[in-house]
C-alpha cells in the first residue's frame, strides 16, 4: 500500500505533527476511499500499529485506507494540565484530511474510527461526540472509565476523577445518554480481554477493587453499565448495533490482542471482502441486546453463553 507520512503544524497543539496515511493499492484509481482512523495506546505512536500488527495487510485486503494519528500521552483529551489533544484530533486532523487527501471519502457511511486501550477510549469518545462523522467505531480493550487509569496521568488529563464526570470524558455517561436518544449512533464494537485492567462497558469488576484513592467514588453510570442496565436499556431495541468481542487470553501480549481485534472489527465493518479473522476457542462474540435482557452479565468472566446463531462461527 502507498504509505504517506505527513507533517504539518497543528493550531491546537502549536506543534509540528505527523500523520500517517495508508492507501490501498487495489484501489489506486479510487477517489472515494473508505477509511479508518486508528488510534494507538499510551506511550505509542501511529507507527506501532504498522510495526506490531498486520494492520497494513488487513487494510489492503479490505480495500480500506488507514489514517494513523499520533496522540502522545494526551489521552485524546484536551488535558487539564497539558495540551489540547482532543481538539487536535477532531479539528486539526480532520482539516488536514479534508485539505490534503482528496481521495479519502467525505461520506460518513465510509468513515470509521477505532483504537487500542486509551485509543479505544479516544475512538469511542470521538464517535459519541461526533456521531454524524462515522459509520462505526471500535474500542479494543478500551479504557472507558477515567477512574481505572494510571492516577498520575489521570490527574494530568482530567484534573480529578470527579472533574471528568458528565463531560465528554465520562464515556459511561455519554454512552447512556446516546443510547436513550433516538439520534443515529455509529455501530459500536468492543473487544476485551479476560484479565483487563481497563474496563469495557460490560466488565463486572468494581472500581473499589482497583483503585485506593480516597477521592474516588463510584460513578453511578458505571454501576449501571456494570449491571448491564445500559445493555438492556429499552432504547437498545431501537436499532443501534453494538457488538462485544471477547478474547479470553491474558494481556501478556497486548499487540497480539490488538491485531486480532482489528481483524475482527474489519470483518464486521467490511464483511463482503476477504475474511481476516478466524474465531477460535478463546474468542466469543455476543450482541448485548440479544443475550443480556434483565439479567446481569456473568460475574466470573467465564464463558458467556452465545446465541445459537453465533456459536458455530
Amino acid at each position: 500500500m502507498a504509505n504517506i507520512v505527513f507533517y504539518s503544524l497543528s493550531p491546537a497543539l502549536r506543534m509540528q505533527r505527523r500523520l500517517r496515511v495508508i492507501l490501498p493499492d487495489s484501489r489506486r484509481n479510487d477517489t472515494n476511499l473508505p477509511w479508518l482512523l486508528l488510534l494507538h495506546s499510551a506511550g505509542a505512536d501511529g507507527s506501532r500499529w504498522l510495526r506490531m500488527t498486520r494492520a497494513e495487510y488487513y487494510a489492503e485486503a479490505k480495500g480500506i485506507a488507514l489514517v494513523l494519528s499520533d496522540g502522545d500521552n494526551g489521552y485524546y483529551t484536551d488535558m487539564y494540565h497539558g495540551y489540547a489533544y482532543y481538539t487536535y484530533l477532531t479539528e486539526d486532523v480532520e482539516a488536514d484530511v479534508l485539505r490534503n487527501f482528496p481521495s479519502l471519502s467525505r461520506d460518513p457511511q465510509r468513515r470509521y474510527v477505532a483504537g487500542f486501550e486509551i485509543g479505544g477510549f479516544g475512538a469511542l469518545k470521538y464517535a459519541l461526540d461526533f456521531p454524524d462523522r462515522f459509520r462505526a467505531a471500535g474500542s479494543f480493550a478500551g479504557g472507558l472509565d477515567p477512574q481505572s487509569l494510571d492516577p498520575d496521568y489521570c490527574v494530568l488529563a482530567f484534573g480529578s476523577y470527579k472533574q471528568a464526570w458528565q463531560t465528554e470524558n465520562d464515556l459511561f455517561n455519554c454512552l447512556r445518554t446516546a443510547l436513550t436518544d433516538d439520534a443515529r449512533l455509529p455501530d459500536l464494537y468492543f473487544s476485551r480481554r479476560q484479565q483487563d485492567y481497563l474496563y469495557t462497558v460490560t466488565d463486572q469488576a468494581t472500581v473499589s477493587d482497583r483503585v485506593t484513592d480516597p477521592d474516588c467514588v463510584t460513578n453511578p453510570n458505571y454501576a449501571a453499565a456494570r449491571d448491564g442496565d445500559v445493555a438492556s436499556d429499552s432504547a437498545m431495541t431501537s436499532g443501534h448495533t453494538i457488538r462485544v468481542g471477547r478474547l479470553n487470553f491474558n494481556s501478556a501480549d497486548p499487540w497480539s490482542f490488538a491485531d486480532r481485534s482489528l481483524a475482527w472489527f474489519l470483518d464486521r465493518i467490511c464483511p463482503d471482502r476477504a475474511r481476516l479473522f478466524t474465531p477460535s476457542a478463546d474468542f466469543a462474540e455476543w450482541d448485548p441486546t440479544v443475550t443480556m435482557s434483565a439479567a446481569s452479565p456473568a460475574a466470573d468472566n467465564s464463558a458467556i453463553s452465545l446465541p445459537d446463531s453465533l456459536a458455530k462461527e
Binding site: 502507498a2 504509505n3 503544524l9 490534503n100
Partner: peptide, 10 residues
C-alpha cells in the same frame, strides 16, 4: 506549509 514522505509501489 506541510511536508510528506511518500512510499508507493510503482
Amino acid at each position: 506549509m506541510s511536508y510528506l514522505q511518500l512510499s508507493l509501489y510503482s
